[in-house]
Design a protein around this nucleic acid. Structure first.
Lengths: 116, 116
DNA sequence: ATCAACAGTTCCGAATTTCTGAACTATGGA
DNA sequence: TCCATAGTTCAGAAATTCGGAACTGTTGAT
């Protein structure tokens, strides 16, 4: 398996963020990860209730989120742990992620990693 | 020519907004329109400095912006007048447009049509 | 009325991108 | 070693995007 690419904070591009979050499935995954109810594994994030996402599609969603700079993924044993980069992102793009999640009605209450 | 479709405020979808603004050319057009230095016509907005956008592509960009709910277009004689729907949009998606333009480094100083 | 010029739209084929089933890889446990 | 599990990669089909060429609608001139 190829090493996973994560852009440096300064290389994160707004168009990539917006593109990644222009897909409701990816937003749902990202929001779920932001609320962090689950452990952050792909399979735990796969269940969005409304449909079964094929695992190759799911893998691709994570790739898009990762390479846009929205999440970090790290292999832990047989699983993959994912976490958002909200705190960093809010530094670089103040208010952006928050207002997007709010627009989608997905803002997870008090998200302590993000300034208000 | 078919009548131009404009979604009602309540029908505007965040994914459409993000998709529309995930293209730097469209953002440049939208930002230029938001600053309103020009008259709002397509051809006036076409010149982004870096390249000549083919007019069919330009027309398509306006269509995407319009149908996502970001702008209103209205025929005025032989030309098309375009204006942003920033004020309405900010009501529906507070802070969203502003933070996107800021992220792109395109926030046009004091944009009076948008709350802060 | 006819014509030409102009602003923008529509059409349609080529190129690119997305989607997903199937095959594959990597890790851990029995 | 062999199997199960979690996720990635591959590859072909489907969908989307791009842009040149043709078209539409409006204005102004003759």
């Amino acid at each position: 398996m190829r090493p996973l690419f994560h852009p440096a904070l300064e290389d994160i591009r707004p168009e990539a963020i917006l593109y990644a979050l222009s897909d409701p499935e990816r937003v749902a995954i990202f929001a779920k990860l932001a609320t962090a109810g689950c452990g952050g594994t792909c399979s735990a994030l796969a269940d969005l209730g409304d449909r079964v996402i094929p695992k190759s599609s799911l893998s691709n969603h994570f790739k898009v989120l990762r390479e846009s700079g929205l999440i970090r993924s790290e292999r832990q044993g047989v699983e993959m742990r994912n976490q958002t980069r909200c705190a960093e992102l809010d530094e670089r793009f103040p208010g952006l992620i928050r207002s997007i999640l709010v627009a989608y009605g997905q803002f997870p209450g008090q998200l302590e990693t993000m300034s208000r």
